[in-house]
Computed example of a mutant assay.
Amino acid sequence: METALFSPSCLFGNTSDNSSDEEAIDETHQNFVERTHQFPGMELIIREFSFHQLNANLLWPGTFAFVEWLVQHRSWIEGRRVIELGSGTGALAIFLNKLLQLDITTSDYDDQEIEDNIAYNCGVNGVVPVLPHVKHTWGDPFTNSTSNWDLVIASDILLYVKQYPNLIKTLSFLLNAYQPNSNLKTSPNKQDLGLPFPAFIMSWRRRIGKDDESLFFNGCQAAGLEVKHLGARVYCITSLSRHDESQ
């Protein structure tokens, strides 16, 4: 995966004045910054990387728009078994777990620093034990041959155009290899909750070229996935082959 050419921390302003006092701060404080973020009904303390080559460093503004949509449609996701792709800091998963007691797994690129930082953010916000985490590089096979996550979520993950085929490969596996959990309280054939089983919902707020956006959506369709716009730049992607099985 290509390395980011800029540090997204510039979006939040430069708080450093290069003083001698700041130069004395230890390496841990130079590598991370903790910020308090307001979420619906709660406040979360999120430790973010000052810089991370895979952009897993900051809580992007688009996450908050996705949070608002998810809260408005909470009945669609309550009781679901969820995996988040590109979890970054883990903030979205932590919020959903605390608000809805959602069974949610975080995942991101195979990088120990990312996993450790998500675990830290879980602990500082009272999510104990920490959320399960899967190190997964898009396009690589999962350990299991089946998936029992009935809902996949992600926010602002379309930055790396060259990774679209790998992302689509991962989505295809998660949607096509889904096997319902025998303990699932809600029938996987039930459609009246607004989202089918399984489904991928993605919020996309960061601006990319229309050609790049179309490249991803067309790639999904070529792989046998159906894309629906749910409004507020939230998209639902499902497997056409699973549609046929349920009929």
Rank of each mutant, 00 (worst) to 15 (best):
T3S: 15
A4M: 14
L5N: 11
F6P: 07
S7A: 13
F12W: 08
F12Y: 13
G13E: 09
N18V: 01
S19M: 08
D21R: 01
E22P: 04
A24V: 04
E27S: 03
Q30W: 02
E34C: 05
Q38M: 14
G41R: 04
R47G: 05
R47W: 01
E48G: 06
F51Y: 11
H52M: 15
N55F: 09
P61T: 10
T63D: 02
W69Y: 15
L70P: 05
Q72I: 06
Q72W: 05
G79M: 12
V82W: 09
I83Q: 07
G86L: 06
L92G: 11
I104W: 05
I104D: 04
T106S: 14
E113Q: 14
D116G: 08
D116F: 09
Y120T: 04
Y120W: 00
V124N: 00
V128S: 13
V130Q: 13
L131D: 06
F142N: 05
F142S: 09
S145H: 10
W149H: 14
D150C: 05
V152C: 03
I153T: 10
I157P: 00
V161I: 10
Y164V: 00
L167F: 12
K169Y: 04
Q179F: 03
P180D: 08
S182D: 12
N183P: 02
N183W: 03
T186H: 12
D192I: 05
L193N: 12
P198F: 08
P198L: 09
F200I: 02
I201C: 12
M202E: 08
S203F: 14
R205L: 02
R207M: 11
I208E: 02
G209T: 08
K210L: 11
S214P: 04
F217Y: 00
N218M: 12
Q221Y: 06
A223I: 08
E226L: 11
K228Y: 11
